[in-house]
């Protein structure tokens, strides 16, 4: 069985590093990115099963990542995490068909469960 692949985008290195460590333990293939630009570039080369993105980033932010992914690769599920949870952003993300939305700090277990749901495994 091939591994499921997850893309993590967060402008703070520690978030991606921790996510990589804990998801790789569960057998996922993980790539991390510090900004939306490089992540979207990578998506042109490689197909990921799930994208987990931070909301607030310089340049291309999480909402823009979400919109682009949904437009170009509608099959990929997007999960949003943000330290600045507010209802407006959440509603906007929901409109854009976000798979799930978590405030930071997010419990890794919950994020994993959400990824599983996104992959149709749970």
């Amino acid at each position: 069985m091939t591994k499921h692949s997850i893309m993590f985008i967060d402008d703070e290195k520690i978030v991606g590093d921790m996510a990589k460590l804990s998801f790789e333990q569960d057998g996922y293939e993980v790539e991390t990115f510090l900004d939306g630009e490089s992540a979207l570039e990578r998506l042109q080369e490689k197909r990921f099963d799930v994208v987990v993105t931070d909301m607030k980033m310089k340049g291309i932010d999480g909402l823009e990542v979400l919109r682009t992914v949904k437009k170009l690769y509608p099959g990929i599920k997007v999960i949003m995490i943000t330290a600045f949870a507010n209802l407006d952003v959440a509603i906007e993300a929901l409109r854009d068909d976000v798979h799930d939305f978590f405030p930071k700090p997010v419990k890794i277990k919950e994020l994993k469960a959400s990824v599983k749901r996104a992959l149709g495994e749970a």
Binding site: I81, P105, I108
Partner: peptide, 13 residues
């Protein structure tokens, strides 16, 4: 709890 390893957090937190 949040820094204990079960959560993803950033330095802002």
């Amino acid at each position: 709890e949040k820094l204990g390893g079960d959560y993803l957090f950033d330095v802002n937190y």
